[in-house]
């Protein structure tokens, strides 16, 4: 038996494969396809204190080996979540994480404070990297001072596991990872989408209502992998790799670069079972290579013996 579990502190994940926020709904959208409880964890779509309608349609366009989205954190707010979604997601026999978002530092604090009380949510992913909102979002994650402030304040009220989701839209993502670690984050996840755009030459207008949007999918993978590698060398907290992972081989690259876990995003749109296939693939690969624990390959490329 190969051990593929991983931990953030004392929080155990039975597999190192989670689903990325905003790409897996509330999990129930996938119930018909497989037992979601197989996953190490699911990260629910981004939540805000108050309901948000998100950005106007069109919100997505396909681009070479990827897609741009500008959903803009559409969600029904925390109160609705507590009443209507929480009871339902609590039934999953896996870690259910919330991705939290704010327009102000106070929003983040209020959200974190209330979510801390939800017994079945063992961790949050602090999203300071959403490129699709006018106020807040990425603004917090692209300035070292504001990033530090929001992480510090959330850390002060949130007692469970805190993962900080980093923006790739910065000069040096390592700075932000180090700040997260210094301010007491339990893990970092990266990358969120890369700010991009596309123009329809027929209509001579941008495809997205917001002009710019977040790029995801295989197109971002090499950039994501590079950042995960850089960050993993610089911090001692677990690094969760995200970005264009479509299959087992893609996921393995992230582990070899130093990620302790991965998140599957856009891949679930094309193959709703991508995450389970990757779990199976990881077990098979490790078995074939003669490893008994996935930890043995985390950061393998940095090991002195190779």
């Amino acid at each position: 038996m190969v051990n593929i579990g991983f931990n953030i502190g004392d929080l155990h994940f039975k597999t190192p494969v989670l689903t990325a926020s905003g790409t897996f709904g509330y999990g129930s959208e996938f119930d018909d396809f497989f037992d979601v409880s197989i996953l190490g964890g699911i990260i629910l779509k981004g939540i805000t204190l108050e309901p948000r309608e998100g950005n106007p349609y069109p919100r997505m366009v396909e681009t070479p080996s990827g897609m741009l989205n500008s959903v803009g954190l559409q969600n029904k707010g925390l109160e609705y979540f507590e009443k209507d979604i929480y009871p339902q997601v609590s039934a999953y026999n896996t870690n259910v994480l919330l991705n939290i978002n704010g327009s102000t530092v106070d929003d983040y604090i209020a959200l974190a404070y209330r979510i801390n009380k939800l017994e079945k949510i063992p961790a949050v992913e602090l999203n300071i990297s959403c490129p699709n909102v006018k106020m807040g979002g990425m603004a917090f994650g692209t300035n070292t001072e504001t990033a530090r402030t929001v992480i510090k304040k959330v850390r002060a009220v949130y007692k469970k596991k805190l993962i900080v989701k980093l923006s790739p839209n910065v000069t040096d993502i390592v700075d932000f990872a180090c700040i997260a670690q210094e301010e007491g984050a339990d893990a970092v996840s990266l990358i969120n989408t890369i700010l991009g755009m596309a123009i329809d030459t027929k209509s001579m207008k941008p495809f997205l209502s917001t002009i710019t949007g977040g790029l995801s999918g295989p197109a971002v993978k090499p950039a994501a992998l590079r950042m995960v590698w850089q960050v993993a060398k610089a911090v001692s907290i677990p690094v969760i790799g995200i970005g264009g992972i479509m299959n087992t081989s893609d996921a393995l690259e992230f582990f070899l670069a130093g990620a302790s876990a991965v998140q599957i995003g856009t891949a679930s749109f094309i193959d709703p079972k991508a995450s389970v296939r990757i779990i199976e693939g990881l077990e098979q690969y490790l078995g074939e290579k003669g490893f008994s624990n996935i930890k043995e390959i985390v950061g393998y490329i940095n090991k002195p013996n190779i």
Binding site: T23, G25, E29, F30, K45, G54, R59, N69, F269
Partner: peptide
């Protein structure tokens, strides 16, 4: 994008 209610793009 997804067709199953997961992405909120449509």
């Amino acid at each position: 994008a997804c067709g199953i209610g997961a992405c909120l793009c449509c």
